[in-house]
Design a protein around this nucleic acid. Structure first.
Lengths: 222, 222
DNA sequence: GAATCCCTCGTGGAAAACCACAAGGGATAG
DNA sequence: CTATCCCTTGTGGTTTTCCACGAGGGATTC
């Protein structure tokens, strides 16, 4: 079983609950850090002292104000950690339930487990710890659902940009102009029409309104 | 100070943290309930025994699956509680940060405090308890911001319905037809145009796509 | 009753988005 | 080199949305 665990979690109200549950379950040393940078620091320190952590349990949102859902920081944290200590196991423990985001953490960040907070959050977290300890990948029922959902195609940068501009109120002509000015191709009015139509097909949307609404709900243009 | 406090909270991971913090701070009896119906039950029982709770601290999401953000249940819970015991004080303690939703809890449900979970969630919760105990209303910085935000107009049922249909991919003609079939007025194609235009103006949206995106972000059509 | 205001709704024309057809260009395979 | 495929783009015509003007109806006020 793991011998040294670090929990990164910005919601102090959770902190006590998680820590006590995890330390009771694993019967090992459990450390905590409230911010991204502190997490990085602790991991570095532990390596230098020759006693690295072998499991990181991390939340995703380290938001400071209500506008930012700042998944980015969670992403950044994990990327950074993987650079410093590539072999560390990572379990994400968060309230985030959007399929696209969950998917991307497995495909892009090679995490070992994902557990959604909620009624059965803690029991699933302990299951996740056991599974990951044995070298497996664990997804709680909620995130398993999300992963197995069809139609959660990955969007490339171009498509995300296009959809964001639509959400911002750009007309198709304006998008074309914007793409030309910023050297993004394809950028003809006509091609943008095609791209949008393809997206409508992919997401089974009858109108562009529904398209943008849908991808937004899926968390694809955050 | 309050003598009997009930905490309704479905995320067990939080539970320990909140409970211990609140009971330490208030030095009073703190009870918990994990589901809406259990909360109602406990409140009824307490009244029957002549020893009612005087403060309810409640979360909003008692979600069972990942699709429902089920604010509705939180709403329902609070409405129900107010019916049973109109004089009970209520503090909402949740992760929900959407301005429109926060606003509606104050205007429609007459809650006494609102605290967003997060880094400083617990300290703000204790502040809220103190303030509410003294008969004041408390909003944490995040929710204060949300309340003071302009442009968070309330939408009436008609407008919400209209926007939802747009989000579902209905064309304006189809919306007209739908409204006619369901006896909702105004329902002419022309009037629907007007309503949409007015909404675009209100929310400063250049296109209908942006309009639906915006109201969705604000949590107005959940 | 007349004046006024507001909401609903029709009309017609402009703007935006949609769509089918097809031409050109680059990449690849035989 | 040629054939083929895929992607980009243009053209022209249809559908959908936008918008300015104005008519009718109900409510209120004087």
């Amino acid at each position: 079983m793991f011998t040294k665990i670090l929990i990164a979690e910005d919601e102090d109200s959770d902190n006590l609950g998680i820590v006590s549950a995890v330390s009771e379950f694993t019967n090992t040393f459990v450390d905590t850090a409230q911010f991204c940078d502190k997490t990085i620091l602790k991991i570095k320190e532990a390596i230098q002292k020759g006693n690295p952590y072998d499991l990181l349990i991390s939340d995703l949102s380290f938001a400071l104000d209500y506008k930012k859902h700042t998944i980015t920081t969670g992403k950044q944290l994990i990327e950074e950690v993987k650079k410093i200590q590539p072999d560390i196991k990572i379990i994400v423990f968060t309230g985030e339930k959007k399929p696209a985001i969950i998917k991307s953490f497995f495909t892009n960040h090679k995490i070992n487990g994902y557990v959604c907070k909620g009624l059965y959050g803690l029991p699933h977290l302990t299951k996740a710890i056991t599974a990951v300890d044995q070298g497996n990948i664990y997804t709680c029922p909620v995130s398993k659902d999300a992963l197995h959902q069809k139609n959660v195609l990955q969007l490339d940068k171009y498509e995300v940009q296009l959809l964001k501009l639509l959400a911002k109120g750009y007309k198709q002509d304006e998008i074309s102009q914007y793409f030309i000015e910023n050297n993004i191709t394809p950028n003809s009015r006509r091609s943008i029409e095609d791209k949008i139509r393809k997206l409508r097909d992919d997401f089974n949307a009858k109108t562009n309104i529904q398209l943008v609404y849908t991808v937004n709900q899926l968390g694809l243009i955050d």
